[in-house]
Amino acid sequence: MTPTLRTDRLLLEPYVPADEDGFVAFFMDARVSRWMGDGPWPEADYRATFARIFDHAYASDGFDVWVVRQDGRLVGHAEIKPAKVVEGHELIYALAPEMWGRGLGTELARAVVAHGFGTLNLEQVHATVAEPNTASLTVLRRLGFRHLRDIAEDDGTITRVLSCDRSEQQART
């Protein structure tokens, strides 16, 4: 079961069905979906994705997925899940644009990485980031992630693959 995590300013908790409209609105914001895969998608696709969180992630304890809240309001999304592209567990996180530039991305990513190393007992946590997403690359470098390789996407863009080892993270704290 996905646990609730707390940081100084954020609450990460499992989604509940009442979060569906907020989830859809969050990911339909082009400023968010620009960095999250091939978005923005049609609304129906986001609703289907939200349903899969309950059917696949939560029902089978497949992986951890959180709604990110600040003062009770949905302000982000986070996951840590197995991913073939990195041959390990991948950190995924996003914040609403009005939350950018406040250090919350670092706070959020740090909490999920700590969960990966502590609760999940992972040796490595990976991330994939679009090359132009300098804010996310900065957050990950700040947390000790190092660049492993690049993936040339079909559309000509580059995705950076980064990794953080448990031993490196422990040395930083």
Rank of each mutant, 00 (worst) to 15 (best):
E87T: 14
A83Y: 05
D64P: 06
T128M: 13
T134M: 12
L108F: 01
G62Y: 02
W66C: 06
E43Q: 11
A59D: 00
E107F: 08
A111D: 04
L108G: 00
T49V: 07
I80W: 03
A57C: 12
T134R: 15
A109F: 02
R102A: 12
F63W: 10
D61N: 15
G72T: 11
V85Y: 02
G103Q: 09
D71G: 15
A78K: 03
A96E: 09
G101D: 00
V65P: 03
E90K: 06
A94M: 10
P82T: 04
T128I: 13
E43G: 07
K81F: 05
G105V: 12
A48L: 09
G88E: 00
Q70T: 15
K84G: 09
V129H: 06
M99A: 09
T128W: 00
Q70R: 15
G118S: 15
V65F: 04
W66K: 08
E90Q: 11
Q70W: 06
T134G: 15
D55F: 00
A127I: 04
L91D: 03
K84Y: 06
A83K: 08
T106D: 01
G72N: 06
G72K: 09
A51W: 00
E87N: 13
T134C: 10
R52D: 10
V75D: 07
R110T: 01
G72P: 10
R73T: 15
E79Y: 01
L95C: 14
F117E: 01
V67G: 15
R52E: 08
S136D: 02
G116S: 07
T106L: 04
E43N: 10
V67I: 14
A114W: 01
E87M: 10
A78Y: 07
F50R: 04
P82F: 14
I80F: 04
D71A: 15
G72Q: 05
A111Y: 02
R110V: 01
P132K: 06
H115Q: 13
G118Y: 04
A111Q: 01
A114I: 03
N133M: 08
E131M: 08
L91S: 10
